[in-house]
């Protein structure tokens, strides 16, 4: 990426680490009472490819009220209104069941040279959420995209470090919109990569219902 070249919207592994650190600090300053982003180092025992540190950024135990609770009466399949319309105990149980907990991981993709969001959700009792449960938590426009492009927007994939299925957002368009987001006003100059992850998360977080405070994108912090 020479100075004369147009920036292509990608991020180097070292910039990813620096930017992750920046995001972590900003998040802590803005959201001291929420769960915090943590860098999880992953040194593969025998096969570490590079001298640079490997790992990912994790935000775990984020509570989210499901959309059904906010917008409409509960239609949880286990406690449908027809089954027990007047049982207060059941309704309270149902309320608890609607509290969903999400874990978010940001992993660097060496293929796309951009960050990729992996996430999973579960109920308070630890029971994992299926895609149909998660969909209820998504903002309406994400559900719409998901219906239109089932296989190319959000799918279950193997987590690159944990080797088990997590949900992920496909990264093939990330560099294009990051170019617009960060490089828009000064196309001939490389933007400050420290702000890459905060800017990226301000867009990606919204698609999965992770509310990002506006200040996160404020460069002065």
């Amino acid at each position: 990426m020479g100075g004369h070249c147009l920036w292509d919207g990608t991020l180097s592994p070292n910039d990813f680490i620096a930017s992750a650190d920046d995001l972590t600090k900003k998040w802590m300053a803005i959201n001291p009472n929420l769960p915090q982003w943590t860098w999880i180092p992953c040194q593969r025992m025998d096969v570490s490819c590079n001298t640079q540190a490997e790992g990912y950024l994790a935000l775990e135990n984020m509570y989210q009220l499901s959309a059904s609770e906010v917008n409409a009466p509960t239609d949880d399949e286990n406690y449908s209104a027809e089954e027990a319309p007047f049982d207060n105990a059941t309704l309270i149980q149902s309320y608890n069941d609607d509290m969903h907990i999400y874990d978010f991981h940001i992993v660097y993709s060496f293929s796309y040279q951009v960050p990729v969001l992996y996430f999973r959700g579960y109920r308070c009792d630890g029971h994992p959420l299926h895609l149909c449960d998660i969909e209820k938590d998504l903002p309406p426009y994400s559900s719409k995209i998901r219906n239109e492009s089932k296989w190319t927007f959000m799918t279950q994939e193997e987590h690159p470090y944990l080797c088990c299925p997590w949900y992920t957002l496909h990264p093939c368009g990330t560099s294009d919109w990051m170019k617009l987001l960060l490089g828009g006003d000064l196309p001939s100059k490389n933007p400050d990569m420290l702000h890459y992850l905060s800017a990226w998360l301000s867009v990606v977080g919204q698609t999965v219902g992770l509310r990002i405070p506006l200040e996160l994108h404020d460069k002065s912090i």
Binding site: I40, P41, M45, E60, D103, L162, C163, C164
Partner: peptide, 15 residues
Amino acid sequence: SYGDSETIGGSWNAQ
């Protein structure tokens, strides 16, 4: 620091 063993830290533990 490799993470909560409950949250599928399996690979690290196994190694």
